[in-house]
Computed example of a mutant assay.
Amino acid sequence: MARIAVYLTGGIATYKAVSVVRNLQKLGHQVRVVMTKNAEKFVSSQTLAALTKEEVLDDLWGKENEAKIPHIELADWSELALVVPATADFLAKMACGLADDAASTTILASSCPKIVVPAMNNHMLANPAVKRNLAQLKADGVLILEPKVGMLAEGYQGRGRMPEPDEITKFVCDNLSIQNTLQGKRVIVTAGGTREAVDPVRYLGNRSSGKMGIAIADEFAKAGAQVGLVVGNINIAVPNNELIKIYQVSSTEDMLNQVEQLFDTCDCLVMAAAPADYKIKNNFKQKIKKKPGQKDLILELTQTPDILKTMGKRKNQQIVVGFAAETENLLANAQAKLERKHADMIVANDVSAGVFGSDKNQVYILQTDLEPVSWPEMTKKEIAKRLVSLIIEKMK
């Protein structure tokens, strides 16, 4: 059972948070509550104190706190921080690192995993500033339980309604279930595309965004693993998580060298990156200039190192997972890759229909001596969560 700090902020949905606290207690979790002064306009601190049998932290400067440092004590105590409901104001404070009251100061001092449950008017939720703050929190590794479409306090339908307490409770428990499962384990995840120099200005590359690999690294970190995230060319922010160490590389050979340095001490390698298969045989030392009358430029290519195959042959007790991005004969090509590259698992997807850069995907899972399994279309974060759970079972 976990030690959960529940942060109540000032929205009409605050009354539902009382049921969330009660649900978590019934499941055996230890719960302590932090409230903003605005939250107390909707629910009294006495109500939460009576339920939890613990003092509610709502003021750093009260007489009872003069000889204590209450926000640090509670931050150190917490194994999970749950903000429910999360107002636009509190999301902004978290995203910017502001600390001007008991709640914002305590959560800033907390190093435990964090879940926020936004609830607000649909116009506020759609505001670019709120979107930026939510994106920043996601990049920082904060889990977001998205608001629902439903009847708002203003009397009309819109997105911004807080999910029901039972759904929030399930979301919390689902994410608690993998915490510390991989504590002491080391994992390598690769993400993004590589760049192969043509000349000092140009390069060969691909459309990989890095979203899938970064989502997988996040999920491994949530499970307690030490993650080496080897990133090539990506177009999203890297995670800010003390369990994830970032290694920036450029070419396929650079990526191979970095993976080889980390491999012997790792327990699992997930090759979610899209390394280039070819490079210029003799790249140009100066920028290629167009010549009068020249319409064509012929570049001679040669193969790059095959990282997945190299590590698949080298593995000892490690689990090696590869990705197969195909445009035709998906399962046949993925099955051949599984066998040829000595992988334990291949995640196969059809990239002919705008998968690169998208937040969603539909994949097949192929494993040695097992029939391929089709997963329904879901977000890349959901795929990452399910994939990491599957890998955890294999590691057991």
Rank of each mutant, 00 (worst) to 15 (best):
S45F: 07
T265I: 14
I288L: 15
V187S: 01
Y7I: 01
R207D: 14
K394C: 00
N349E: 03
V238D: 09
L387Y: 06
R159K: 05
E196D: 14
V270N: 02
I4A: 09
K289S: 08
K290Q: 09
V172R: 03
P165G: 09
D140C: 06
P165V: 01
I365A: 00
I69P: 03
A135S: 11
A217F: 07
A325N: 11
G155H: 05
A2K: 08
K26C: 12
L297H: 03
T14F: 00
A332W: 10
P147E: 04
V201E: 04
N65A: 13
I144E: 06
K313F: 02
L366T: 06
I168Q: 04
I107M: 11
P70V: 02
E66Y: 13
A103S: 14
I4H: 11
L387S: 03
I346A: 01
D100V: 14
A2M: 12
I144N: 12
K281A: 15
G228H: 14
Y15F: 05
K131P: 14
K289I: 12
R22T: 14
W375E: 03
E154C: 02
N349L: 07
I365P: 00
K26N: 15
A49T: 12
H123S: 07
P163T: 03
M162S: 02
V31A: 02
M395P: 02
Q157E: 15
L176G: 00
K309C: 14
D89Q: 13
N122Q: 14
G160S: 07
N121D: 09
V388S: 04
K337V: 02
S177W: 00
A276V: 11
M94I: 05
E377I: 05
E253G: 12
K289C: 07
A324V: 00
A217P: 01
P113T: 03
V6H: 01
L390D: 09
E167W: 04
T304L: 11
A191P: 05
L82G: 06
L137Y: 05
V56H: 03
Q30N: 15
A334K: 08
G293P: 06
L387W: 07
R161Q: 04
L82I: 13
Y156R: 10
V320T: 13
K281N: 11
K138S: 12
R161L: 10
A353V: 12
E393G: 02
Q46W: 06
A225W: 04
D199Q: 06
E55F: 04
A153H: 14
R386F: 10
V320F: 00
R159F: 15
P128G: 04
M271K: 02
M124N: 07
I365D: 00
N257L: 15
V117A: 08
A139F: 10
G293D: 13
P70Q: 09
Q136I: 06
V84Y: 03
A109T: 13
M212G: 01
Y278Q: 05
P305E: 15
T106D: 14
V84C: 02
